[in-house]
Amino acid sequence: MTPSRITSSKWILVAAAVWLLAIGGGYSWIMARSFQASELGENPVLDLKTVHMLDVEKPTLFVFLHPECPCSEATVEELARISERCEGELKIFGIFSDYPTLPQPAGRSRLWNKLESILGARSLLDEDAHLRHSFHAATSGECFLLDTDGHVIYHGGITSSRGHSGPSIGGDAIISFFNAGNISTVTAPVFGCTLDND
């Protein structure tokens, strides 16, 4: 075969270079968007109602979710992995914010049911955004791992980027806490949508 050589005219090469740069730019943009983390709020102040939700024998993971948000979808998928790896030693509450603009009530969303199917997980509707405010949670996918006494063990996201499931710093930290008894990090970026309208 005749050796393959790029012998195209100059303008094609220039156009190709421009094309490559454009694609590179596009990729950079979507990557930057995917890895754009939200700011974490302060640690939560637990009220009595919240304290009663804590399990007396094992840690409890509070996860704030948006019923339609892809970031919440990725988070729930990650929860399933974490629950499986923790072998039922973790109590999980999925706190769904409710909005009147949703295509369907949060309690009937696909994500609600998906979370219910995870071992040790339970879906809760955060009426009046009470819990969200209590926990100072502002981003979908934001998690709070509390021990039986209500102390925060971990606070942050459990996904690697926005809307992307898979191994993440937060998820691995929680799993390592249950497997090794200590947590590798107490906080990690959270990649999600804003839960407040502001």
Partner: peptide, 16 residues
């Protein structure tokens, strides 16, 4: 998979 992204109760076309 990702038709919308949300800002609270507001939705917009997802970056994807």
């Amino acid at each position: 998979l990702t038709p919308y992204t949300w800002l609270g109760s507001h939705s917009m076309v997802h970056d994807h």
